[in-house]
Amino acid sequence: MSTTGTPLTKKDFKSDQDVRWCPGCGDYSILNAVQTAFAELGKKPHEVAIVSGIGCSSRFPYYMETYGFHTLHGRAPTIATGLKLANPDLDVWVVTGDGDALSIGGNHLIHVLRRNVGLKILLFNNRIYGLTKGQFSPTSERGKKTKSTPMGSVDEPFSPIGLALGANATFVARSVDIFAQHLVAMVKRMDAHRGTSLLEIYQNCNIFNDGAYKSFTDKELRDDRVVELHQGKPLLFGKNLDKGLSFDADLRPRIVEKADAATWDEHRANPAYATALAHADEASLPVPIGVFRDVARSPFESDLRNQLAVAGERKTESLDELLLGNETWTVGS
């Protein structure tokens, strides 16, 4: 709770509330990573506000010793937008899940991204509805058998990264709950971005969708199944970074020799390559993690505030003048 003096540690970002996620849930490691990153970034608890929607992930603010607002299903981006407009200096984070952000709140997510409001969005993607006990989500794979889809779902899933790029998001990245160091690094990258930054976090729900990401996150598989995106570096993977990823004429990603690997540029204005990676076939290609896109665009709240400043310079008017308007008449006593 101390807010002055000695440098803060991740403990300073832990609230006094008992964490009530299921034992073994991926959310614990994300909480830990965020607390670590915040401490390492030198944040002060009172300068941070975390806004969440509804779902397992959205309980997050209760466990953080910062300002927190647990809002409505899908609506966190709207409330966070208002908060950021109210106080552009405040460090506003949004915590959401795949159902919250992409199903009931899909509309708000795309609009906040296109506006580029200065929010940092942590999207916990476990590809399932956890808090309502196991229905398929908009990121569940086709054919997913759940209580509500006993014969398998016939829904095509969203790629959250692809969706964000389609909405012209300025910062889009992906990490994994159990890749602690990578996750901390990504949280720090988000923090440095001006405008909306969206981090998709692959998160394991060990109760309703256990092992969703096992095929590429298991320790022994990881090296061959995951490709890390690094700015200005070739797309390499494999235990000794001996394999590469490139794009064919139709921008389809394909595995190539190390020497032929494409060089990654997250600053490209054209989101085509990033989009191609976002939609890469998970079964046959290594899964990309890291920063897909990082481009500069002025944040919404600064542009709006600038208009106020300009208007204020152009015209000063007292409340009396405003109330009177231009056309009045007087009734004498």
């Binding site: 509330q17 608890p45 300068e47 506000a49 209760y62 300002y67 927190g68």
Partner: peptide, 11 residues
Amino acid sequence: PGTPGCTHRIG
């Protein structure tokens, strides 16, 4: 939010 010493959570 932003006031030192008043961090809290609502919902």
